[in-house]
């Protein structure tokens, strides 16, 4: 189809938007290699100085450990809770289906700051201290709707007939699940886990309500460091975060394409 008139203007505008969106992020990465004391332009050489300093900072390493453990546990829990729910919505018809689906997706439309307050208040009423468990259950609530959406979208493509065929051929329900349903589900599970890990790893708005000095995640740590303006260390820490959370989904996408191609052969 012929491109509309004024296309070059539309393209130029789009490129400008991209430049606007990515310049600040590129600046973070660039400045993290600036050996100069203040995290600002001009660049005066190229060094890993700030990365070495990060690697020697025990509280930052601790925050990384926390974030990774928290993200992994969130991923496992959310997927374990979310996949059965997604199956219920995709496979079955029952009364109140649409209402329940909306209810489970509701956290997306509730302001995160209110989610943060609500859970904290509840824990306080139960007279429990802020703890790692609070962060974990909070992150499960935050990530559940996204996992539901992503997994439901993938599940629609898996036909019920495969399972029925397996059972007709004499497979037990367990065998059917293990050798038919599970392999077909695997990409959805993988996508769900990845999604929840990244959301958990990156979250700051609600997490700032739930974290304590002993249970800091990396974004919370960055927030704490920001009090005294931006430093090259923050840029370096930001770069590590960017590389980590961007490369994981890209790598996962690559892997799943490889799997898909291998399955075709």
């Amino acid at each position: 189809m012929k491109l509309p008139s004024g296309w070059s203007l539309i393209r130029a505008y789009t490129i400008l938007i991209y430049v606007w969106m990515f310049t600040p992020i590129v600046a973070v990465v660039l400045l993290s290699f600036n050996p100069q004391q203040f995290g600002s332009f001009p660049m005066e050489g190229f060094s890993f100085r700030w990365y070495f300093r990060l690697a020697g900072n025990a509280t930052i390493l601790g925050a990384f450990k926390n974030s990774i453990v928290l993200g992994s546990l969130t991923a496992v829990l959310t997927t374990a809770v979310g996949i059965p729910a997604a199956m219920a919505f995709v496979r079955y018809d029952f009364r109140g289906k649409d209402t329940l689906n909306t209810l489970l997706l509701a956290p997306i439309m509730i302001p995160e700051v209110v989610l943060g307050v609500a859970l904290l208040l509840f824990i306080r009423w139960l007279q429990q201290p802020k703890s790692f468990v609070l962060l974990l259950i909070g992150h499960v609530v935050l990530t559940l709707p996204y996992v539901l959406l992503v997994v439901q979208a993938r599940l629609v493509g898996i036909k019920k007939e495969y399972e029925e065929a397996a059972q007709t051929l004499g497979a037990s329900p367990f065998q059917t699940f293990w050798s038919v349903t599970f392999p077909l589900l695997a990409p959805a599970i993988f996508a769900g886990m990845l999604f929840s890990f990244t959301i958990s790893f990156d979250d700051v708005t609600a997490t700032l309500f739930w974290a304590t000095a002993h249970n800091q995640t990396v974004p919370v740590k960055i927030f704490g460091m920001l009090r005294n303006s931006i430093s090259p260390e923050i840029n370096a820490l930001g770069t590590v975060m960017i590389v980590l959370t961007v490369s994981i989904p890209l790598f996962a996408g690559y892997i799943s394409r490889r799997f898909a191609r291998a399955a075709e052969k």
Partner: peptide
Amino acid sequence: PFWISFIIRTLSWINILGDSGLINH
């Protein structure tokens, strides 16, 4: 950008708009 932490995206503007940021430089 969905995969980059909100706090990093927010503070990244300091590098652009700050007194010694890109634009002023």
